[in-house]
Design a protein around this nucleic acid. Structure first.
Length: 197
DNA sequence: ATATGGATGCAA
DNA sequence: TGCATCCATATT
């Protein structure tokens, strides 16, 4: 029996829809040990019509990947310190990406704690993955992962459908941006211990 | 509240 | 080429 994995058609949809539907799904990364977690917070970033998006002022060397085919990983460095993990959405030619902001760790907590420089036993789940930078550090993701496929077998990263879909979901304003701050493009699983804030 | 620290993109 | 900006975190 083959494990079910989200396929390209899942990501080739409207970005906000993908962002919302990713809640509850399981992100699995395999490189130097297997780690996984349940996605509990995402943000949608659109194309030209979204000034907060890297693609908001058209295609640049960095943002070009957002205009490319869906189901691809987009990783960038923020504040010169942290990495952020995104999934490219929409059909090829239409820009869009979903930022993975937080998850609940499931498999490989010891590995994540090690990567996060936390002492075994002296941390809570939310210390591992409650934030885009923390999450990347815990998963061992950096810019080397930029451009990798979410659907090719053996790429080291994939997303599995939600086993237990979230009971309640909310859409709230995005954070850390100065443009289009009012748009409710940030999605959260209500009640999770691992949300940002 | 504040130090951190590098790539990106645009103006010059 | 220079420089303001940036989808954050840990520590004080």
């Amino acid at each position: 029996m083959v494990k079910p994995v989200l396929d390209e058609s899942f990501f080739a949809r409207e970005t906000c829809r993908v962002a919302r539907d990713l809640l509850g799904c399981v992100l699995e990364v395999e490189e130097g040990g297997r780690v996984s977690g349940r996605i509990v917070e995402t943000e949608a970033y659109l194309g030209e019509q979204d000034p907060a998006s890297h693609a908001g002022r058209g295609s640049t060397p960095r943002s070009a990947i957002m205009f490319g085919p869906p189901a691809v990983v987009y990783v960038y460095l923020i504040y010169g310190i942290h990495h952020c993990l995104n999934f490219v959405t929409e059909p090829e030619g239409c820009a869009g990406a979903v930022l993975i902001r937080a998850m609940e760790p499931v498999i490989g907590k010891e590995i994540m704690a090690l990567r996060r420089n936390l002492e075994i036993g002296g941390y809570r789940d939310r210390d591992l993955t409650s934030g885009p930078g923390k999450l990347c550090q815990a998963l061992g993701i950096d810019r080397v992962w930029n451009g990798r496929s979410l659907v090719e077998v053996g790429s080291g990263i994939r997303v599995l459908p939600a086993q237990t879909p979230p009971t309640k979901v909310v859409a709230v304003p995005r954070v850390g941006i100065r443009q289009a701050v009012d748009l409710p493009y940030r999605f959260q699983v209500v009640g999770s211990e691992c949300l940002t804030d």
